[in-house]
Design a binder for these strands. Structure first.
Lengths: 213, 213
DNA sequence: GGTTATTTCAAATTAGTATTTGAAATAACC
DNA sequence: GGTTATTTCAAATACTAATTTGAAATAACC
C-alpha cells in the first residue's frame, strides 16, 4: 500500500501547496509550512517533486486543468446561439471560474503577473492567450465589420476587466477580512447579468459612434 | 556639505527603492541591490531608514504624495460641471495617474493587495477608500435616486475596473516585453474617451432597466 | 518469511540576506 | 586648525529556509 498512500500524499501536498502559495505568494510560502500543513515530513516536497519550484508549477497546472474542466469556456452555450447569448455564456463561465474559491489557478496567475517568479511564464502564455481570442472574436462580431481594431481591443479589454478585477479584489478582501462580513458581490448570477448588460450597452455605444471618434 | 549630500542620497535611495520594489516585489528586492544601484554602501538603508521595511513604507508614501499632487482626483473639472463631465474628469485623471510610469505608488498598491506584506495596510486603507467614495457618489448621481445600492456598487466597480485593470496589465506587459513593441493602449486620451463612453452607456442601460432586474 | 524497493524521518548542510559593528573618512563648527 | 558630529565603509554576525543525507520504517514481491 505504499503506492496508494504515496499518491494520496502527493495529492495532499499539491492541494496544500496551492493554498499556501495563494496565501503567501511563492517566495513567502515556506516548504516547512506546506509540509507541516500536509502532515508530511520536511523533505517530502523534494522527495516527491524535486524542488519547491517544481511543486509550484505542478500545483498550478493541477488547479488549471481542474478548473477548465469544471467551467468550459463557452459556458455551455451552443455555437449557433445568438452572439449576445454566447457572450453571456462566456462571461458567466469566466466569472464563476474566478469566483470559485476552490480554484487556485486564476489567482496564482494574477500574482504571477504582478510579481513574476518566471516559473509559469511559458505555460500561462500558451494557455491564456487562446482564451482571450474567443472573446475578442465575439466582440468583433458584436461590433460589426465597420469597427476599427482599436475599438475591438478597447471593448474587449473593458469587458474582461469588468469580469476579472472585481472578483479578484473581492477574493483579496475575503482573505483579510472577517469571513462572515458581507461581500459586495454575493450573487454571481446577478453580477454576471449586470456585466452582460453593461457590456452590451457599451459595445452598442462604441459601435454606433462610427469609426472616427 | 554632509547634510546636502546626505539628503540627496536619501532621495536617491527612495527613488531606486521604488524601482526595485516594483521590479521584484518587497521580498525579492534585496537591500544589497538597492544600495548598489543607488551607489551607496550596503548599510546605507539601515543608516538612513532603519530597516528595509521602513524604506518600503517611506518609498510608497513618497511616491503617493507626488502622484496625488500631479493628478488631482477631479481631473481639474469644476464641481459645478455636469455629472458626465465630472466623470470624464475623474476617470481621465485616474487613467493618467496609473499609466504614468514615474508613479510607483499605484503599482506597489496592486502588489500589496494581491500579495500583502502588511506594511502598507493602514496607510492604504486610509488613503484609498476616500478616493472611491468620490466615484461612488458620482455614479449614484448619474443613476438617479431610484437606483438600488446593488446597482450603484456594481456600476462603480465596473467603471473602476475598466480604468485600473487594462493599464496595470499593460504596465506588467511592458516590464517583460520588448520596450519598443507596440502597446495595446497607446493614446490614453482616446482610451479615457472610450471608457467614458462605455461607462455612460452602461450606466444608462442599468438605470433604465428599473429596480427589479 | 526473506529480500528488495519505496517512503518517511530528523539532523546536517548550504546558501542567501538583513542587520550590526567599529573603524575610517568627511564635513561642520568654533 | 583642532574638535566634534555625521556619514561611509568592509567585514562580521545572525537568521531563515531550501536542500541533502543516510539511517530507519514500511510495503511489495518472490
Amino acid at each position: 500500500m505504499t503506492r496508494k498512500k504515496s499518491e494520496a500524499k502527493k495529492e495532499k501536498l499539491l492541494a496544500v501547496a496551492g493554498d499556501v502559495f495563494i496565501e503567501k505568494g511563492f517566495r513567502d510560502a515556506t516548504v516547512a509550512e506546506i509540509c507541516s500543513r500536509a502532515e508530511a515530513n520536511i523533505s517530502a516536497v523534494n522527495y516527491h517533486f524535486g524542488s519547491k519550484e517544481a511543486l509550484y508549477q505542478e500545483a498550478w497546472r493541477h488547479s488549471f486543468t481542474k478548473s477548465l474542466k469544471t467551467y468550459p469556456l463557452d459556458g455551455g452555450v451552443s455555437e449557433t446561439a445568438p452572439a449576445e447569448e454566447r457572450l453571456r455564456g462566456q462571461l458567466t463561465a469566466m466569472i464563476r471560474r474566478i469566483a470559485d474559491e476552490n480554484n487556485k489557478d486564476f489567482f496564482i496567475a494574477q500574482m504571477e503577473m504582478i510579481n513574476p517568479t518566471g516559473l509559469l511564464q511559458e505555460v500561462m502564455k500558451s494557455e491564456l492567450i487562446p482564451m482571450r481570442q474567443q472573446t475578442l472574436a465575439l466582440v468583433r462580431e458584436l461590433l460589426g465589420p465597420e469597427a476599427t481594431d482599436e475599438q475591438v481591443h478597447f471593448c474587449e479589454t473593458s469587458i474582461i476587466s469588468m469580469c476579472v478585477h472585481p472578483i479578484v479584489m473581492q477574493r483579496i478582501a475575503r482573505r483579510t477580512k472577517d469571513k462572515n462580513m458581507p461581500d459586495i458581490i454575493e450573487d454571481f448570477t446577478a453580477f454576471a447579468d449586470h456585466v452582460v448588460t453593461f457590456a452590451l450597452a457599451g459595445i452598442n455605444a462604441v459601435g454606433s459612434r462610427g469609426n472616427k471618434p
